[in-house]
Write a protein that binds this DNA or RNA. Structure first.
Lengths: 348, 348
DNA sequence: TTGTACGCGTTATCAT
DNA sequence: ATGATAACGCGTACAA
């Protein structure tokens, strides 16, 4: 098969290639009639410009890349949708790209910058810990939009970040449980080796205990296994089953993700308990499913819409040279629903 | 900033560009020492080859594109993971690309073929109805992996397809409900304008009724609104609430997606009913959440793992010239869990 | 084993 | 308004 190129179109129309190029790219200096002719033959011939060649030549493609780490997070779809709208609003185009869990997102970004002449990058998800040195190679403005785990941004002027203070919000969750009477609170957490989001949420749990002068029962700290670090339904389910099998004494479960919370509820139901009658369960994230679960899930909801919007706004501020890089932290909202109950003074 | 190119590397190493190229692409004819030197300086200089330039030159990149329509479907993550493994196993690389709902996937594919020198394409999701003529332009083997809606493949030899017979499986669902005593079955369906998956599942519902000599109560056919055609939690919730508000008489709900089924359960719970005691609810899809919902969701589970695997296997068969295009239909499995109950003979 | 030179398809810069 | 031509960065045939 012979690929049809811009030259063929030019030849057929009896014009030069540059004229065809002008027609394609909506350049001003072109006769409407010739443009019409060219457009027509392009249609007829099914000509499609080769993007590789375009990117090679083009100085600037007015495009923003969004690099998504992992595909599993249910938030991302919504965030991407919002980002896309905002990007299109500014007449830029969005290059969506997935990064494998074991890939290095910065390497991918570096490649993409060369390939697509990007103007800006958004890193979505993943627990970003890269050497300043390496980040400096990324000569393009970028913002870190991190769902979970406020990055250590002190002194980082090479990029912006949008985050939630996981330590603080996790603290709020546990503090709330304590305030309504829970003293024996299990946490479904990441393994100790996890240094980002998992650790922050666990630290919040610990601090809330100590601030409220409640001793921590280490048996109630359930860490997922190193092999399966994902904040999944199944992990919540398995961890809770282990907790139950050990016959631990607790009144509430704090799962560090909504999916884990739902898994936890299921394990409790399977064991014949009721939520929140026998056990209270609280999640973290604010996924849509939480509202539809039965009982509706009490959770710490992350402001993902705002974060998505701010991510792009911040990126453009830097691109347009209006502002320096900034690190913004947004508050999550404790969303009270039906999976947690207040403990009566006699049952504490 | 000055972009560093292959020439710079060649110059620094005191070799020709082709030698550097050979080093990069692991060509055999190269002195290990020079290769080592080149690799070292590439690292040092942070040189990254420009993919646009490579694609432009390369005849063949041994890559397969997976075009995903929409980002919402919870299946896709898993399917993509499986496909990726299978593709990597064959030393090909996967180009993952999202297609907007209002974009034309074939157009996108056409562009991508030129840009990336694809060897094959997988269309995932979306309700594929394109002119043969247009598909013919796609000079690359492709397979249609359709979750929901067996495409009309009669006489289509230009591509392969992997699907589930939605009509048949939907029929099975309803037939099952009828067999265990349900006669007043509501269906939460797509609007009548939907000609693919929604229609097929509705047709199965109707056929099961007529085969079992049970009259259809049109008031129990709940179509989602034209504006919001998505198989979402909220749609299931809203449709069921409308059903309840109309005080319709029914004993079971067949939601054409698991998410809608869960939304439906929630509406029933909100109204003070119990599932399956007061109403039985059955879904369609087999999403992971179904097992963890309470009650665990009875559903028609699609064999997505097998489908993902077969999609790639079939694609490679055609790429390797081993086989012609084929259309394979896989059976779904009725997964009995806790959201449906048998009706006693006195309550029918 | 290595280097030179050309061309991939396009856009940008000149001319005209 | 239009056309010729030089890049863009790379892979590869061919020569050495």
């Amino acid at each position: 098969m012979v690929e049809i190129t811009i030259k063929d179109i030019a030849q057929i129309c009896g014009v030069g290639v540059s004229t065809v190029s002008r027609a394609i790219n909506n350049h001003p200096d072109i006769n409407p009639e010739t443009k019409a002719l060219i457009t027509k033959t392009i249609k007829e011939m099914n000509y499609i410009p080769n993007n590789s060649a375009r990117n090679l030549k083009r100085i600037d493609a007015k495009s923003i890349a969004v690099l998504v780490k992992g595909i599993t997070n249910p938030f991302f779809s919504n965030m991407i949708k919002i980002m896309e709208e905002e990007i299109k609003k500014r007449k830029y185009s969005l290059v969506l790209h997935h990064v494998d869990f074991n890939e290095d997102e910065v390497d991918v970004a570096l490649e993409l910058v060369k390939e697509k002449r990007l103007r800006g990058i958004v890193f979505l998800g993943g627990y970003f810990s890269h050497a300043e040195e390496k980040l400096a190679k990324l000569q393009v403005p970028f913002v870190l939009s991190t769902i979970g785990g406020a990055p250590e941004t002190i002194g980082k002027h090479t990029y912006s970040s949008i985050s939630v203070d996981d330590f603080k919000e996790s603290y709020q969750v546990v503090d709330y449980l304590i305030k309504i009477g829970h003293k024996k609170i299990a946490i479904l957490s990441a393994p100790f080796s996890d240094i980002s989001i998992g650790k922050l949420r666990l630290d919040g749990y610990l601090k809330a205990h100590s601030d409220n002068h409640i001793p921590v029962n280490e048996n109630l700290i359930c860490c997922m296994h190193e092999q399966h670090i994902d904040y999944s339904l199944k992990n919540g389910y398995d961890l809770t089953n282990e907790l139950l099998a050990r016959k631990e004494d607790f009144t509430a479960v704090f799962a560090i993700s909504d999916n884990m919370a739902i898994g936890s509820c299921k394990a409790l139901f399977d064991a014949g308990y009721e939520v929140p009658k026998d056990y209270s369960v609280i999640g973290y994230d604010g996924i849509e499913m939480g509202q539809f679960y039965h009982p509706a899930l009490t959770t710490m909801a992350q402001p993902i819409d705002i974060m998505a919007l701010e991510t792009i706004k911040q990126l453009f501020k830097v691109i347009d040279g209006l502002e320096e890089h900034q690190h913004k932290v947004f508050p999550a909202t404790l969303t009270l629903r039906d999976s947690v109950r207040e403990l009566g003074s006699n049952e504490k």
